[in-house]
Simulated scan of single mutants.
Amino acid sequence: MPPISLPSTSRALYRVFIAPTLTTSNFTPIRIHQLPAVHLLPSQNVRQVSYKKPAVRQNLSDVFTFDNAITSPRVNYIDTSGVFHANVPLSRAQSSFNRALFYLVQVSEGKVDEFGLHLSPEDLPTCKVISKIDLRAQHAKKMDLERRAAKGQGAGPAQKNLELNWAIAGGDLKHRLGKLKEFLSDGRKVEVLFGTKKRGRVATMEECEDLMKKVKEAVEECKGAEISKKMEGTVGGVLTMFFQGRRLEAEAEKISRKEEARKGRRKSDRVREAAEKESEDAEKESGEKTTEEKAAAI
């Protein structure tokens, strides 16, 4: 309200010019829509980098002692024919074979006294001439066993699983039994799982028993193979049989190598005895000659 003391003219001017400016008007705020952010550079996917433990790599010289790494000046060694040679200079042993194809590998260190000396020829290091291909194969096998041991797996060959249908056909059964024999001959553990197909023919109890009999006969044909664990499950349903094979070839190779080493030692002993006998005979002959010469001089 205008002040009462104002005259009528001032009051009229107040109503015309001042009063309208004092009234509140409806104000509608302007909404500003937020525009999406514009990327000037192309977006890139961030790739997570994972760091893995580097693979352990070993050279032959880290595992085996061969050729120039042998420190003893004299060694006992077995040549490529399996003949044992006792108390031979290292240089002569290294020059007795083709070094482009073979290594002279130290298989035993020998015995030394407190001064680092070998007391007798029997205490010398024993070496063997091995082809480079065979030594690399031994190294690869050893590395594979170490990797399996690090993963908590057994040192032997990996286990194999074989699945058989109770109503399997004759041709398929022959192929599967051949695989079973192959796995057992390699010395592997084999689990044979019997079962039925969802939409397949249901085998009779006689067929199931006949199938189990054929599997057992195939296992018996593999020398050294045996049942390692009692079977689990039901005949005609889901059944598992456990077998353990044995690699007889490796054992035969070990036995043959031992026999060759023994034969080589015996041969070298005979040669040494013959040489000693010849030297004794020569000494006797020289002694007899000196005695005769002395008698003739007298």
Rank of each mutant, 00 (worst) to 15 (best):
L101P: 02
F102C: 13
L104W: 11
V107D: 08
S108P: 13
S108L: 08
G110Y: 09
K111A: 08
V112P: 12
F115E: 08
F115I: 06
L117E: 11
H118R: 14
H118L: 05
E122K: 14
L124H: 09
P125T: 07
T126Q: 15
C127R: 09
V129C: 12
I133A: 09
R136V: 13
M143I: 10
M143N: 08
D144F: 10
D144H: 13
L145V: 14
E146R: 14
R147T: 13
R148G: 04
A149Q: 15
A149R: 15
K151I: 07
G154L: 08
G154P: 10
A155R: 15
A158D: 15
L162M: 07
L162E: 07
E163N: 11
E163K: 04
W166L: 04
G170Y: 04
G170M: 03
G170A: 10
G170R: 08
G171R: 08
L173V: 04
H175V: 12
L177M: 02
L177T: 06
G178N: 03
K179E: 10
K179A: 09
K181L: 01
K181N: 02
K181C: 02
S185N: 07
D186V: 00
D186I: 00
G187Q: 04
G187I: 02
G187C: 01
V190C: 02
L193T: 09
G195F: 07
G195M: 06
K198N: 09
K198L: 07
R199F: 06
R199T: 13
R201E: 10
A203M: 05
M205F: 03
E206S: 05
C208K: 02
D210V: 07
D210L: 09
V215Y: 02
V215P: 00
V215N: 01
K216W: 00
K216T: 03
K216Y: 00
E217C: 00
K223T: 06
A225I: 00
A225H: 03
A225M: 00
